[in-house]
Simulated assay, not measured.
Amino acid sequence: MTRPTQAIIDLQALRYNYALARQRHGGRALAVLKANAYGHGATQCARALSGLADGFAVAFVEEAVSLRKAGIGAPILLLEGAFGADDLDLAHANGLWVVVHQESQLRMIEAARHLRDLNVWLKVNSGMGRAGFAPGDIAAAYARLKANGRVSELTLMTHFARADEPDSDATAQQTRVFDAATAGLPGDRSLCNSAGLLQWECARRDWGRPGILLYGADPMPKGDSGLKPVMTLCSEIFAVRELRPGDVLGYGGTFIAKQPTRVGIVAIGYADGYPRTAPTGTPVRVDGQPACTVGRVSMDMLTVDITHLPTAGIGSAVELWGNQVDVNVVARAAGTIPYELLCNVKRVRFSYVDRENASPGYPAPASQQAPDLVR
């Protein structure tokens, strides 16, 4: 019998979220697939979005080449740009678009006399303080790229630091800095990440770059953007323990029963990507009913309180996050962000389904599962 732990990826929800992002942004949108599509499977997500997405974005060239080898022919942007001349050659050979955010990358292109028709995205540091040319240097960098004969398309971009803070003026200020720095320079613009395109109408330009929102984790504090969860992380109870008052449970003895307590042992742990820092009381669903974790999360298993669920027992379905348990809530309980939780999922079976054709609940039909997927 196969271990019952799996991540079900709802490709219809992925397409829905992309369409919502594109509609909200009003312009074209690159679906961000870096970090293996935030842990969801970059190739499968790219194929699901083919014909819908205007293009894709990844962090570095190896991520893009994997998509090309899988037959993805749409535009792909390298968000970190090229790390060296070999990277630049590989990007050119695969028809990739490259971000230029520092002087060394600019010089790299100027030295590549054998290359032509590069599609470059020139990045302005408008306030993130991380990567990008200073606003006062962007016009000179733009002129050098235009003059060197290697670049056929040039897009101007920036990245927001606090777009998920609706009460802060930081994003509006970054937008003003970007607009002033790029005034009079021809070409498309790209400003909005997920939070930017959901919240900041003033920043919507030619290209959006939705990332985390594609996967249904709302980056905004209220969580009311209408997104659909894409990953359901689920498992089953495989053993039950009856605790008496005073009995201690798990590593460190952090949980001591105050009353008779039924505990379900679930086949998932931090080695699968569930956060070890999730405390007692973190919400789960057992057979569709609200429940919570108790005690410390172990490497291969965790424990849940099923005292109030007399019919729950061995074989009961447990959702750790998904349609019934908001991954944002789990992340807050564990003291982290949903990005980290989703990217960390591993060692579980991945199943790719279309919710339009799937029956309610989980697990997915065996014909739609991909237990042998190499990740």
Rank of each mutant, 00 (worst) to 15 (best):
M1S: 09
T2C: 07
T2V: 14
A7C: 15
I8C: 13
I8D: 14
I9G: 08
R15Q: 14
A19P: 01
A19N: 02
A21E: 11
Q23T: 15
G27R: 07
R28K: 13
A31Q: 04
A31T: 01
V32Y: 05
N36I: 02
H40S: 08
G41T: 11
A42T: 00
R47L: 12
R47P: 05
L49R: 03
L49A: 01
S50L: 02
F56Y: 15
F56E: 11
V58I: 10
V61C: 13
L77A: 12
L78Y: 10
A82H: 00
F83A: 15
A85Q: 13
D89N: 11
D89Y: 03
D89T: 09
L90Q: 15
N94S: 08
G95T: 03
V99E: 02
H101I: 02
Q105K: 03
Q105W: 07
R107F: 12
M108E: 14
E110C: 01
A111W: 06
L115A: 15
L115F: 11
D117P: 03
L122N: 05
K123C: 09
V124L: 14
G127A: 13
G129F: 08
A131L: 15
P135E: 08
I138P: 02
A139C: 12
A139F: 00
A141Y: 11
R144H: 09
G149L: 15
V151W: 02
E153T: 05
T155W: 04
L156E: 10
A163E: 00
E165W: 11
E165S: 09
P166Q: 10
P166G: 01
A170T: 06
A170L: 03
T171S: 15
R176P: 03
V177H: 01
A180C: 05
T182D: 07
P186S: 11
G187C: 00
G187K: 05
R189M: 09
R189N: 08
C192E: 03
C192Q: 01
S194D: 13
S194Y: 02
A195C: 13
L197V: 10
L198V: 12
G208Q: 13
G211D: 07
G211I: 00
I212H: 08
L213G: 06
L213A: 15
Y215Q: 10
A217S: 12
M220A: 14
G223S: 03
S225L: 03
S225A: 15
L227D: 10
P229R: 00
M231W: 00
L233M: 12
C234K: 02
S235Q: 06
D247V: 06
F255S: 10
I256A: 01
I256S: 00
A257R: 05
Q259R: 13
P260Q: 13
I268V: 14
G273Y: 05
R276A: 11
R276C: 07
P283Q: 10
V284E: 05
Q289K: 13
Q289P: 08
A291G: 14
G295I: 08
S298G: 11
M301L: 10
M301A: 11
L302A: 04
T303L: 07
H308P: 02
A312S: 14
A312Q: 01
I314D: 02
I314A: 05
G315Y: 04
A317T: 07
V318M: 06
N323P: 01
V325Y: 07
D326Q: 06
A331V: 04
Y339K: 06
Y339V: 12
L342Y: 01
C343I: 12
V345H: 03
V348K: 07
R349H: 05
R349I: 13
F350T: 02
P365N: 06
A366P: 02
S367C: 13
S367T: 08
S367F: 04
R375H: 08
